[in-house]
């Protein structure tokens, strides 16, 4: 895909996020929007996947360690053709397969259930190790929040990944700087994030603009070409990206827009769409 196509697609993913969370009257738009370009790049460009065969054996795997940003994953999967985009409005509703946090038994394309922070990266390490033990050459990607890395298990897993030289593993930290209680450095600073992963024997890539597809492309290429150690991409992003009143505002971590706010949000995204037209 060209950058323009990726930008258009990411904008559609953002519309799906806002629409799903609005319909659910609950959910996590902020961190879904900050990671929308990463999600889009992974599923439309980077990963070896097939929406018609979600379980194909040699597919690349994705574990959403920051499971609360399920609206971002679901919207990406829907736009990629795993299930109808129209179903996004069933998010979080009784009887819907689109559970509040990803459930692998119910959602086509979801490789692992998640939601409890810090656990997805361990599972991603296990899949990556399993691939190596089976001489399979698929890659494993996992997306973490920058608040999530306050969980100790993240560093248990990182020690393991570095020790085992899991170069088929790519950890992405969505570094949008905000968590529920405020700025990550005010709550309990995880910085320096890059130095920490380096200390755990990762190859670290500082992606200074996680909304620039040239830079995203370069980061994932570098990760793919890195041998002998796992890669961590520290993706500097803007929480709420694309929706004016959500950008950089921790209040929109886990809150749904009301009808008026939804109209403003969709108008914002429509304006962006027109820029690409």
């Amino acid at each position: 895909m060209t950058n323009l196509e990726l930008q258009k697609t990411a904008n559609e993913v953002r519309k799906g996020i806002v629409t799903g969370v609005h319909a659910a009257k609950a959910g996590h738009p902020g961190g879904s929007l900050s990671a929308a370009d990463i999600y889009t790049y992974l599923y439309f460009e980077e990963m070896n996947i097939d929406p018609k065969d979600p379980k194909k054996a040699d597919r690349d795997r994705f574990v959403l360690s920051k499971g609360h940003t399920a609206p971002g994953l679901y919207s990406t999967l829907a736009n990629r053709g795993y299930f109808p985009v129209e179903d996004l409005v069933t998010l979080r509703k009784l009887g819907s397969y689109l559970q509040g946090h990803p459930c692998m038994q119910h959602v086509p394309g979801v490789d692992m259930s998640s939601g409890s922070l810090g656990q997805g990266i361990s599972v991603a390490c296990g899949i990556a190790l399993g691939a190596k033990m089976s001489n399979a050459d698929y890659r494993v990607y996992t997306l973490l929040g920058d608040g999530e890395i306050q969980e100790g298990q993240v560093w248990e897993a990182s020690m393991f990944a570095g020790h085992r030289k899991l170069d088929n593993l790519c950890v992405i930290v969505d570094n949008n700087g905000l968590q529920i209680d405020g700025k990550v450095e005010d709550v309990c600073s995880p910085y320096p994030i890059d130095k920490k992963f380096e200390a755990f024997n990762f190859h670290v890539i500082n992606l200074d603009d996680a909304h620039d597809f040239d830079k995203i492309r370069a980061a994932f290429k570098e990760a793919r070409e890195t041998k002998g150690m796992p890669t961590a991409i520290i993706a500097h992003s803007l929480k709420g990206k694309g929706v004016s009143f959500m950008e950089g505002n921790a209040d929109w971590h886990g809150k749904a827009p009301n009808d008026e706010e939804y109209a403003v949000a969709m108008a914002d995204l429509e304006k962006i769409a027109q820029q690409f037209a």
């Binding site: 361990s122 599972v123 296990g126 399993g130 897993a157």
Partner: peptide
């Protein structure tokens, strides 16, 4: 051997099962 890290070991086991082990 996962080292003294039982929570991570649990996730590693989960991942290995997803990889067919």
């Amino acid at each position: 051997d996962c080292g003294i890290a039982e929570c991570n070991m649990t996730g590693i086991a989960a991942g290995l099962s997803l990889a067919g082990k």
